[in-house]
Amino acid sequence: MAYRDFVSLIHKSTPRDYLARVTQRDKAEVAELAIQWDYDYWDGSRETGYGGYKYDGRWRKVADAMIAAYGLKPGSRVLDVGSGKGFLLHDFKEACPGIEVAGIDVSPYAVEHTMESVKADCRVGHARKLPWPDDHFDLVISITTLHNLYIQDLFPALSEIERVSRGGKYICVEGYRNEREKVNLMYWQLTCRAFHTPEEWQFIFERAGYTGDHEFIFFE
């Protein structure tokens, strides 16, 4: 299990006003809207989610780095667990013509609004039960998704990622290393269910039998 710096390539490019997130509007109210995974979360205001989740090409550098790190080539199969609107999958296909991609997301809204280039490759579903056979993908990724699961779903999701991969596996989750980062995470998050330090995440990975790579993002 290796630590990878993929999402860190773009994570710090987004400015965040942590205090505004909890003072401008009732945080519990906006969180209730966010966990519906509908318009408010993806394309509503910044208070309830992304504030309009639109393709801007920023994920291309992540796709390029993953292709290089995992030796992907035409014919390789990649699964994104928590694929959102398919931006990263689109960039995979542009960066490596002939690659086969698949995506799954719990949000019907996100899948309905997935980019046309990969829309046929994405479906609605839950990470705890992936509808593919064993050893089907050369790379399975899940970026800022699994921390949104309660513990009873988190363990099966990790096991499923392990099961359907015949090669690379990469997970990125939120975490905290000190009290400031913990508070900032609590202020900023809208959908998080698993609040853990890196050491706790390592414990969970090992108990779930997850053997792939990982990365943490922190709110400094």
Rank of each mutant, 00 (worst) to 15 (best):
S76R: 09
P131L: 11
L139Y: 11
A65V: 04
L130A: 06
P74H: 02
L158E: 03
V81H: 03
K129H: 07
D138W: 01
N148T: 07
P74W: 12
F155I: 15
E116G: 10
V81Y: 00
I99R: 00
F137T: 10
K93L: 09
K85D: 01
L79W: 10
F92C: 08
F92R: 01
H126P: 00
R60C: 06
P97Q: 10
I67Q: 03
K119H: 14
D80E: 11
R123I: 12
L130G: 08
S83A: 14
I104K: 00
L72H: 05
S142R: 14
T144Y: 00
A95W: 12
D135A: 15
G103I: 04
R60P: 02
A157T: 02
G86M: 05
D138C: 08
M66R: 01
Y70F: 13
T145L: 01
S159P: 07
E100L: 11
G125C: 11
L154N: 09
D64E: 12
I143M: 05
R60H: 10
P108L: 12
P156D: 05
I141D: 02
I143Y: 00
E112P: 11
S159A: 15
G71N: 15
G125D: 03
Y70A: 13
V140M: 06
W132G: 06
T144W: 01
A68I: 14
G125V: 13
I141T: 02
A65P: 01
V140G: 08
L72S: 07
Y109S: 05
K73L: 13
I151G: 07
D138S: 14
L72Y: 08
S76K: 08
K61W: 08
A95Q: 14
L158S: 02
R123G: 09
T114F: 04
H113G: 02
I141F: 05
D135H: 14
M115S: 05
D134F: 07
K85A: 04
H113M: 06
M66I: 12
G71S: 14
F137H: 04
